[in-house]
């Protein structure tokens, strides 16, 4: 474990908690893409199946349980409890265009052709594009609530910090996982235009609104 991975995990945890609290406190999931949240629930489920089979550390296991729990709680709040506030018309990204190619790629390019490893690879590839429905929804509505932009910033920052963690592990632990690195770079690149808007608008106290 290194400081970059730890702050990355904490940034990821913060994002998940921010979103959950935003929906719970405002009793509304306006502006939130339920499709992205379903994809994240799938990402955690397929990646953490080893919860039952391999124990790495208390930290590792507890974080996995928290991530999975919060992901399903968020999906529940969006599609069940506060479904009246779910903006289905703007959450119209065709996720099958993500899941199918990612599934195919996971079967073709992986470290080991075993069930758990293909699911882990699927999860890594899916996570890199899971935010697209959310970014697409913001481009369609032309704006995002400030709390949602903080959620997205923490979520984008987490994988950017993981990239630094991989650089660190390459030099100090000779650890190198090309699949995770390539997917992580793609994932972080997808946030670049959001990061630009976040820094130039939200951090200056303006509302994030796209030229519609």
């Amino acid at each position: 474990m290194n400081i970059f991975r730890l702050t990355g995990d904490l940034s990821h945890l913060a994002a998940i908690i921010i979103l959950l609290l935003k929906i719970w406190k405002t009793r509304s999931c306006a502006g939130i893409s339920g499709k992205s949240q379903i994809l994240f629930a799938i990402v955690f489920t397929t990646r953490y199946l080893d919860l039952l089979s391999s124990f790495i550390s208390l930290y590792n296991t507890s974080m996995k349980v928290i991530y999975i729990g919060c992901a399903y709680a968020t999906v529940y709040l969006i599609y069940m409890k506060f479904r009246a506030t779910y903006d289905g018309n703007h959450d119209s990204f065709r996720v099958e265009f993500l899941v199918v190619p990612v599934g195919g790629l996971a079967v073709l390019i992986n470290h080991d052709f075993s069930f758990l490893e293909i699911l882990w690879t699927f999860s890594i590839y899916l996570e890199s594009v899971a935010i697209l429905p959310q970014l697409f929804m913001i481009s369609k509505t032309g704006e995002a609530e400030t709390i949602t932009t903080h959620y997205l910033f923490c979520l984008g920052l987490y994988r950017a910090l993981y990239i630094v963690n991989w650089i660190w592990r390459y030099y100090f632990e000779a650890f190198f996982d090309l699949i995770a690195i390539v997917a992580g770079v793609v994932q972080t690149i997808l946030y670049c235009d959001f990061f630009y808007l976040y820094v130039t608008k939200v951090l200056k106290g303006k509302k994030l609104s796209l030229p519609a």
Binding site: S54, N60, L116, W120
Partner: peptide, 10 residues
């Protein structure tokens, strides 16, 4: 790289 104990990152 992939080790027999699976992946140690979240």
């Amino acid at each position: 790289e992939y080790n027999i104990f699976g992946h140690d990152e979240l």
